[in-house]
Design a binder for these strands. Structure first.
Lengths: 354, 354
DNA sequence: TTGTAGGCGTTATCAA
DNA sequence: TTGATAACGCCTACAA
């Protein structure tokens, strides 16, 4: 049995599976190297042979094996790993699209994992991605855990960019929304209108953005020489229902707030619901209820037709993703270890929707 | 120079990059095979050596190269390719999460691409995924193109599942939402309430779901012995702004509609906006405007606080993704070529949000 | 229980 | 211009 027989046997056995350069070479009657050359642009290959090779590629349905390819020294995997705390959250979905857009433009594909706010799952995802030799990582870090798995030594040399949230002790490129400035501006607006009893509905302060938005809220108060009223600060509402309940409680206080700041759109919507419900029952009872002014972080569907005076802190999640990806590719392509970690805070806009 | 010297030189040169089994073996003072065995569970390796190996792995920050691994006969890449027409659409984001959930549970990772409704981009994505030896593909097919690139012969043997939309001439497993029944039920509700001038705002009918939802709308009319009014059917609105504009035009007609069916959430939201805007200007002018009843396909954020009488055809996009992934893994794990293409239509629910 | 040889698919390098 | 060889990192088969 000659080597050709063996090769031929292999080739035909594989017709239905994944053909290799070898199979294509056999079909075209050339050597594997010629096939490889043609696939890489065809420099220094006779036009006639190029035709033959392309025809064979077509006939066999050949697709170059990128995994084998990336094994060769100097070659890269063309992959970027992305972990997100919740892919289904429209905000992160928009961010993911931004990442994909830039990755695509740079000829890379994205491996996507959902960490579900679980640091352990996140660690597994990152380890798996490193095992697949991603060229870099973009991570929305989970709010649990200490970020030990994000330390550079564990990443096999792949650069990391954190998006949306920072992690204490992890000194890498980070892209954030300017939570503090946004919350401060929105609160300042309420204060400038004369409100002095402003409620705050937000996340647990263990959530990075939650902490920062409460900071902004507090700073705006300090800016006019007062302190936030502790009784009016409610943290930990995760959904609209909880937020509505919290707001209803606030409205039941002997001295209810005259305005409210929702630190995310669930809390803002919940607040609006409670306000509207209260207004309705007041109307039904024939009494007039005080108008409650509302401001919130993040816009939402129908924000512009909400039945209250509403201002929102707005920004484009896609920008966040694009910016994070840009930073990653700067590290990859331009200067492998250019300078130390950068922190970017994307600006936000305060919009009045009335 | 002995082989050891060479190997040692390599190892130290690589300390900062990606160590290999060889490097770990050197560090642990064993052979690469022992390392490999330990990494695969440690059967038939002395506990003492296992410790040494794990310590070396830790010291060097070793991650097994999955790409090299998948090269070996019998091994699989552990990847599933997913292409979506628009990742940022919350609907598909939810679907993607469903796919990721099932993929993760099956020990696979997902490669994600955005086709942007562009058949050519989709073709490139699929080709790239095949090149990376994905084990299977889940595709939300773009509304353009003929699906030639989705024919089995081009897929290198990887099974394909179409999600959300079918493609004429591509005979593969497909998971759809029951668009026809949903649109029919919602329209029937409006008709049952006595509405006879019902507007339709939807996609171009070249979009698979657009066509089907218009069919359902039409069938509901036939069910009560009438025809839809052609003047009230507006197709092709891709975003909320266009839908709002189209609805405003309809409201300007001499005989405006008394109800509207939005064939997707962008169109429903746009319709609501136009209705609310009209109501406000009427209120300002001191005249009363007619209530317009609204029904729509797909729910959306805060649909339940929409300031109109609204019913939505609801379903869980996550189910769509999970089901598609399930079907894919059935093909992969159970019976490689079990039976012919299956078509699944997931049921929908009509919900009143008032 | 441990180690050696070889090959998965590709391509850089060198030879023809 | 074309082809043979070797090596990327890993692991099955076999040998020790």
């Amino acid at each position: 049995m000659t080597p050709e027989d063996i090769a031929d046997g292999r080739a035909s056995a594989r017709r239905s599976a994944n053909p290799t350069v070898h199979d294509v070479a056999l079909e075209a009657g050339v050597s594997p190297m010629t096939v490889s050359r043609v696939l890489s642009g065809g420099k220094n290959v006779r036009a006639e042979l190029q035709d033959k090779v392309w025809r064979a590629v077509e006939t066999l349905g050949y697709h170059r094996n990128e995994n084998a390819r990336s094994l060769r020294p100097g070659h890269r995997s063309g992959l970027v790993g992305v972990t997100i705390t919740n892919i289904a959250n429209p905000y992160y979905a928009e961010m993911l699209r931004g990442v994909e857009e830039i990755a695509s433009a740079n000829g890379r594909r994205i491996l996507v994992g959902n960490s579900n706010e679980d640091a352990d799952l996140e660690r597994q995802l990152v380890a798996d991605f490193i095992g697949r030799r991603v060229e870099g990582l973009i991570v929305v870090p989970s709010s649990t855990g200490d970020g030990a798995h994000l330390q550079g030594e564990r990443l096999g040399g792949a650069p990391l960019v954190l998006a949306s949230r920072a992690v204490a002790g992890v000194d890498v490129d980070t892209v954030l929304i300017d939570d503090v400035a946004g919350a401060r501006a929105a609160t300042a607006r309420l204060l400038a209108e004369g409100h002095r009893r402003i409620a705050f509905l937000g996340n647990r302060s263990s959530v990075f953005t939650g902490r920062r938005r409460l900071d902004g809220f507090t700073l705006a108060h300090h800016d006019v020489g007062i302190e936030p009223l502790p009784d009016l600060v409610r943290l930990g509402q995760q959904d609209v229902g909880a937020a509505e309940h919290a707001m209803a409680e606030l409205l039941d206080l002997p001295h209810p707030p005259t305005a409210v700041f929702g630190a995310n759109n669930r809390n803002t919507v919940g607040a609006i619901r409670a306000i509207v419900a209260r207004r309705r029952s007041a109307d039904a009872a024939g009494v007039t209820s005080a108008e409650i002014r509302v401001a919130g972080f993040d816009s939402f569907d129908f924000a512009d037709i909400a039945p209250v005076r509403l201002s929102v802190v707005d920004h484009d999640a896609g920008d966040l993703g694009r910016r994070a990806a840009d930073m990653l590719f700067e590290r990859l392509d331009d200067a492998p270890a250019a300078g130390s970690a950068r922190l970017v805070e994307l600006p936000v806009t305060l919009r009045d929707l009335f």
